[in-house]
Design a protein around this nucleic acid. Sequence first.
DNA 1: CAGTGGTCTAGACCACAAG
DNA 2: TTGTGGTCTAGACCACTGG
Lengths: 233, 233
Amino acid sequence: MTRGETCSWQTVEEEVRRRINAREWPPGEMIPNEVDLAEEFGCARATVNRALQRLADAGLLDRRRRAGTRVALHPIRKARLDIPIIRHEIEAKGLTYNYSLLSRKKLVPNAGVQARMQSEAGVRLLHIEGLHMASGAPYAHENRWINLSALPDAAKVDFSQQSPNEWLVLNVPFEGGDITFSAISARANEAAGLSCEEGTALFVVERTTWASKHILTYVRLTFAPGYRVHTEI
Amino acid sequence: MTRGETCSWQTVEEEVRRRINAREWPPGEMIPNEVDLAEEFGCARATVNRALQRLADAGLLDRRRRAGTRVALHPIRKARLDIPIIRHEIEAKGLTYNYSLLSRKKLVPNAGVQARMQSEAGVRLLHIEGLHMASGAPYAHENRWINLSALPDAAKVDFSQQSPNEWLVLNVPFEGGDITFSAISARANEAAGLSCEEGTALFVVERTTWASKHILTYVRLTFAPGYRVHTEI
DNA sequence: CAGTGGTCTAGACCACAAG
DNA sequence: TTGTGGTCTAGACCACTGG
């Protein structure tokens, strides 16, 4: 160990990472407390604290008051995934975006959708189907339900120019949501919209978003064949 | 505004979130600088700084030195995804885990795999196929390549008792990786392993991991029908 | 109870970029 | 040039929890 002059939280984080990777501090092992590390690195405890908190957040350390800090036994890696507006996703690839509305109706949903939306039996929701296209080719089929009692404004929008995806992102602040990824075989209407054969494997993203304890919307996005989601760890 | 007595960073973060959601600070708008906010909330600048940094990290604010802080125009939401060991994923569902090795050979990979592994033409890699099972039912098919020049120890492991997935996580520290999610139609060998019909839509996770600029391993996990990845936003 | 991490403070200096 | 965020410090108190 070199007793260098540096003392930024980045330096501390990097060195601790190195010691973990090099097994100088093996999985499960206690590491020195913040005061000792601060002395070793020649910096304030707050600096060490910041570095260690980041590492704990990344899943590499387990920290508990009084018990101290130890190297995580099973470093559960966490990936971060960006959830962009579809138009931006397409434009970022250098393609031109286009959208067409397929259907817009007030409907009583089936039991599955009703449960996800936490709406009451018999209540009508706004149902919208649309197609997102990239340079003329089908990109994703959007099947969306909107809770009109939480979002009465949506009833006034016709969604023929702007997709519900974009209208919601720009106009409706939300607090949280659930996302699910899965794979399905194309059904007849999806196959038709996405210009593929029935039975083709398609990537599906389902999302519900909520604010102040109300479900605002549920969307099922079915992507054209070949779609991939990419992230780093 | 109530001039409350509270002054934790959580309080500040919550209040700023509220103002953004309530459009008191509309998208694109500048917000007061840290000194002013600290005075308003009756706390130190460092406390405000911590709250605002978290919000910027979450994508709700854009901050730049000298230019100040403004509400993000298109709040790109970021989801966090845990990447568990498959055995843990299965056991967390209350099922019993089982693993069987299907194949283990040193092979020269095809061009696609060679490119992903950044290995040289003609060099043999360790190729392993195995099946993860949950309470007797097929769960995921693992198709893995290991770079033996970066991980010579792997040549000594037979992987009949422990899956490469688990051996790697426990024994090989890595610095980063790429992850891709997609959907495919089951090919003959996958359909056989996963007890489904050829052509069934399957969820696929591909992952490469690296350390000190070397690709360590590339894995393609093909999950049994019905698999879903879930996360929150 | 006592030792650990979690947080807050007041003040300081630095790095960056807009004007 | 100058105002902004980014960071570090020394010290303090609090909150939790293991022994």
